[in-house]
Simulated assay, not measured.
Amino acid sequence: MEAESDAPVQLRELIISHCPKLQRFPKSIGCLNELKTIVIKACSNTDSLPKEFCRLKLLGHLELSDCKKLSLLPRRFGDLANMRYLDLVGCSNLKELPVSFKNLVLLQFLNLKGCKELIFRSDDFQNITKLEFFNLSGCAKLGELPRDITNQASLKELLLDGVERLRELPIQIGQLSRLRKMDIRRSDLLIGFPNSLGDLSSL
């Protein structure tokens, strides 16, 4: 991608794996406006995504796994309005989600396993209500779950293995009526369970 005019605009799927010297993507990636799937695995030197990445309006599936130097997502990441599947497993230097993250209203699958530096703002999930799978295992700095997690009426799996600082579950967690699996192993500071846990009849 030497220039924007040379970009193969009909590309629908982009897979990049085990490219340890890849640090950044060219701005022209924003011209790939037919992209629906991006998989970037074990690019251990990739530390950022260009703001032009957020022009990919058809992007529904994004994997950025084991990109250990990635510390921030683009400010307008929430412009990726078609995003349904987001996998950030092993992005161990990711510190926070952008303010616009709450605009990913179609998001169904979110994997943040091993994002051990990550902490949430109180409204990161304010407009997100369609999650079916949510993995926070190994997010060692989280002391509490996102405030709006109990709005996820479709949530089926909630994985919290190794969330070492987690002290309590939301009082209204019983509202997650479709929850079939919850893993809370190795949460040594957890002090108890809310009464509403008994309302999770699908577990």
Rank of each mutant, 00 (worst) to 15 (best):
D148L: 13
G78W: 04
L107C: 07
L104F: 08
Q126A: 13
P146N: 10
G90V: 10
K113R: 13
C115D: 04
L104R: 02
L145E: 02
F109A: 01
A81N: 12
N103C: 15
F120L: 02
L80R: 00
F120R: 03
F77R: 03
L94E: 05
G114Q: 03
C139H: 04
K130D: 10
I149E: 01
K95V: 11
A153K: 12
G90H: 06
L155W: 06
K130M: 13
N111H: 07
F133N: 05
Q126H: 13
K113I: 04
R76Y: 15
D87H: 09
G143F: 10
D79G: 09
Q108S: 09
L106G: 07
D124M: 05
S122I: 13
K102W: 08
V105D: 06
F134E: 02
L94R: 02
G143Q: 15
S154R: 12
K141I: 00
L106W: 10
Q108H: 09
G143W: 11
K102D: 14
V99S: 15
D123N: 13
L106F: 14
R75F: 10
C91M: 05
N93I: 04
R147K: 15
D124W: 04
P98F: 06
L106R: 07
L131M: 06
F120S: 01
L86K: 00
Q152H: 11
S92E: 15
F133K: 06
I119V: 15
E96D: 14
S100T: 09
N135C: 06
L104S: 10
R84Q: 13
L136A: 08
E132G: 03
N135L: 01
K95A: 10
S122K: 15
L86V: 05
S122V: 14
N82P: 07
N103T: 08
G114A: 06
E117H: 07
P146C: 10
L112H: 03
D148C: 14
P98W: 01
K102Q: 15
G114C: 07
F101H: 06
P146G: 11
R75N: 12
G114P: 10
E144W: 02
L97T: 00
P146Q: 09
F125I: 03
N82F: 09
L94W: 00
L131G: 02
L136S: 08
G114W: 00
G114E: 05
G90Q: 08
I149M: 12
G78K: 00
L97P: 05
S92I: 11
R147H: 15
M83N: 10
R147G: 04
L136V: 01
D148P: 02
F101S: 10
V105Q: 07
I128H: 01
L94Y: 01
